[in-house]
Simulated assay, not measured.
Amino acid sequence: MNKADPISLSFHDSCLRMSDVQLLHGPRWLNDQILSFFYEYLSHVKYKNNHDLYFIAPEVTQCMKYMDDSELALLLNKNNAVYKPFIFFALNDNGATEEGGTHWSLLVLSRPEQTFFHFDSYGNSNTATSIKLMNKVKGMLGMRMAQFRPMRCLQQANGYDCGIHVICMTDHIAGYVSHLGMIEGLPILHFDTVRAKRADLLKLILSLGGSC
């Protein structure tokens, strides 16, 4: 047990330490743990009854980049990904197997639209990474003919809020497709949603029994 950095909240497959939660208090870049927690919350609470949505935690997405085909097939089949209409990948530009990187973006597979949609809050800086992941998984997902489509989206106003944008966009898109069954026509995220999200996440962690 790390007494210098105690656990704030254990929630399903995520574990937040106080150092992770502290990232939400200030103008800081968000790490894997914060995004993973939010994806667990979406999976197990907010959208637990919507089996059309599959949220892949960022650390799993990172591992997928380096899995061989047999490992990747086992993972995707285990989670019935080949049957999921919408799959969300929180994507990091990290080029190594361990944690790291400098930028987050969001890749979303829409099976009904036969398209991988990419949402990047900092221009097209993660395009190459997202296309590489798409090409690695699309055949195994039965989406060999799927198109790649970069989407116009709200741009971050600083150098550290890419993770917050991914969290907000994931929730925004999930709500939209839950009602309309498609991503086409998605309205642009409002800046106020992004601005309020750090405080909202801290409240969420407290509501689930965590400490901030």
Rank of each mutant, 00 (worst) to 15 (best):
N49T: 12
P27V: 06
F37W: 08
Y66D: 06
C63G: 01
L76H: 11
Y54W: 11
C63Q: 11
Y83A: 15
L53D: 11
F37H: 06
E40N: 05
W29V: 10
S70M: 01
T61E: 08
P85Q: 14
L75G: 11
A73Y: 02
Q33M: 09
A81N: 14
D68T: 07
M64E: 09
Y39R: 01
E40H: 00
E40P: 00
V45N: 09
K48E: 08
D52I: 04
E71M: 12
L74Y: 13
V82T: 15
Y39H: 08
S36Y: 00
K48L: 01
N80T: 11
D69L: 05
W29T: 05
W29P: 02
L74G: 07
A57W: 00
E71I: 04
Y47K: 05
K84A: 14
Y83W: 06
L72M: 13
D52R: 12
W29K: 07
F55M: 05
N31G: 14
T61F: 03
K48M: 04
K84Y: 07
L72N: 13
R28P: 01
P85L: 14
C63P: 00
I56V: 14
L30Q: 11
K78Y: 13
L72G: 09
Y47P: 00
V45Q: 12
H51M: 07
F38R: 09
E71S: 13
Y41K: 02
L74C: 12
K48I: 02
S36G: 14
D32C: 03
M67A: 04
L75P: 03
W29Y: 14
R28H: 12
E71R: 12
F37S: 04
I56N: 11
L30S: 03
Y66F: 15
F55K: 04
L72W: 13
K78D: 11
P58D: 05
